[in-house]
Write a protein that binds this DNA or RNA. Structure first.
Lengths: 196, 196, 196, 196
DNA sequence: CATGAATGAGCATTCATTCAT
DNA sequence: CATGAATGAATGCTCATTCAT
């Protein structure tokens, strides 16, 4: 009759992913041993292999989980009919919220090189977000509010600037509060906006 | 009796560093085995330990060598008496030259996370370049040509944008020639300049 | 309320043994994982441990089941009052029938080394069949129809020859039909018979 | 000037192969752990991987070494111009010598199933010896001294009988001295010879 | 009875490092 | 200086077995 209370809301798969997130951010994929992940997650080493086929499958599942969070946030809140300026602000805001609420997730996604072990699905996921960003740029250029520049490159430039800001905060090289983020956002808009 | 002619200008230490650079960029520090570096450098595994105390010492020596190249280039060519705009252009130009002439060096320095194994000297080296960048910003702000913003943050934002551009080129997500780099530079200036 | 009809004549224990037989023959005892047996038998891994105390107990139960089949067949059909030649033919026929009708069982019993994990009961079972064979040889020698030779050795020689023939068929190195088996039987009789 | 004495005649690769032979015979391939081989050989576990790419490569090297010993002995001493009877005796004698001088090698080669991990070269090696045996049978049949029977099958029958005899000795189920071996040889010849 | 998630010791293999030559 | 065989701790992963349901 009595059910165990603990596992009700607690999920072993998520516990493993959470533990992996912390360790991968701190030491990198190759620098983290599977038994370390297990210990940090409070499960046995073998248990990890009930949920993930391999260490590579684990890192891919983690990447997918985190990338989908940002992707969903950005797509969900994107104001399709608003002005480019407002759209830009919305994208920035969602990314900033993600990076603030989930600093480890952001660090994992953007501060590490995953080149060699990401699977096709994740590469496509990553690509789709970049395509979305470039699409926004292209539309805004067509609307005449952004400079002429390869949309992909413009997107990478702005995204790089955003990462730089968040990284400075993450590595405590700068104090970055909401005002600072707002100032950075304004600066980035100035970088790409057509000035009258 | 006859001495070998080859090692005249050729240096085993550099051969090891060059080999390590290629492998670390491709697979990361933890993903690269010392014997792999040895084989790629054309020396025996034990030889690496004549030149470097450990794998960590090797990666630090490499980081130092590459970071000093950029640092020296920027400091050497910095026009102390020119206008902030010209100084900005000079910094950008030196970084772009480095990234173009030595793409692996740039990728190694900026596209990887070295957090856990860099020594104090390298952390200081990294810091000094950032301090220089922030110093430029502060001076330019004092001169009234840049927006008000935490100089460190402004520097990180611009440097992040630069990395984003170079990374897009490195990962072949955008075609980035000299014109594109110039456009990116102009955009970055617009990001930080005070608009009248 | 309603009971399941399926298990009527179908027995989970036998399903496990059948699955184990196929896998042990194919990959050997140590090369086969218990969960593989479970999956192949269509039961859960834990279920195997309701029927068998351990993997070793499983392989012993299987060995016993198969060995008892041959033993029973040979004993049952042995014509105690017939001539040695007829008795020899009967033994050969029963073994051939077993090997033909149950090739996996024969391969399991005779083509694999079970040295390290067979229990006393199975060792005794194995021994008793050899003793029976040696007994037949001894009686036939007493009757003056077989050569003088250590009965145990003569039995092993003939049994080895039989295994060689069956193995050649199993591993498809020779085409062995009923005629070939009959020729082999005749040759084996010639090997041991006293020639006038 | 002074050389080390130990390694002069002592070879680590052979020490590993010798240790592996003993363990594989006793426990089988899958039942033997690589660290066990290392300990038995008196080397570190990693050392095994300097000499062999994998456990499978080790067992294949061992199989090759042992199989080549028998093959060479049989081919070398085969009296091409002698009578079939003398040739048969020669083959039997070489196999018996091998099995007596190197009982573990024989047990390894013939008493275990190597099906799943032998490489092409070893399969070919095995095949070539069987082909040689079948060739002898065919020639002797042509000479009119052997019964009509599929040569391959006849060879397998005799080889099986030989294995049975040696196995009985190995597992101490019979006392097999030179006289017993000679009697077994005679019996086997009777099995296949055409009786006038 | 039956399940299958969970365990953790054990396995094959790798790799940073040493050292006799 | 340079070598590369040798080491053995550590890694990613497997698997016999248990146990709560």
């Amino acid at each position: 009759m009595a059910r165990r209370a603990a596992p009700l809301t607690w999920n072993k798969q998520d516990a493993i992913l959470d533990a992996a997130l912390g360790l991968f951010v701190e030491r990198g994929f190759h620098g983290t041993a599977v038994p370390e992940v297990a210990e940090s997650a409070g499960v046995a080493a073998g248990t990890i292999y009930h949920y993930f086929d391999s260490k590579a499958a684990l890192v891919n599942a983690l990447y997918r989980r985190e990338k989908e969070k940002v992707t969903r946030a950005i797509h969900t809140s994107f104001p399709a009919r608003a002005s480019p300026r407002a759209q830009f602000a919305a994208i920035w805001r969602e990314m900033a919220t993600f990076a603030t609420d989930n600093p480890q997730g952001f660090a994992f996604l953007e501060l590490h090189h995953h080149g060699s072990y990401l699977d096709q699905q994740n590469l496509a996921l990553d690509q789709s977000l970049r395509t979305f960003g470039a699409g926004f740029v292209r539309a805004a250029q067509t609307a005449g509010v952004l400079k002429a520049m390869d949309p992909k490159l413009m997107m990478e430039l702005i995204f790089g600037a955003f990462i730089g800001v968040i990284r400075a905060r993450w590595e405590q090289r700068a104090f970055v509060d909401d005002d600072a983020l707002a100032a950075a956002e304004a600066a980035c808009w100035d970088a790409i906006a057509l000035h009258p």
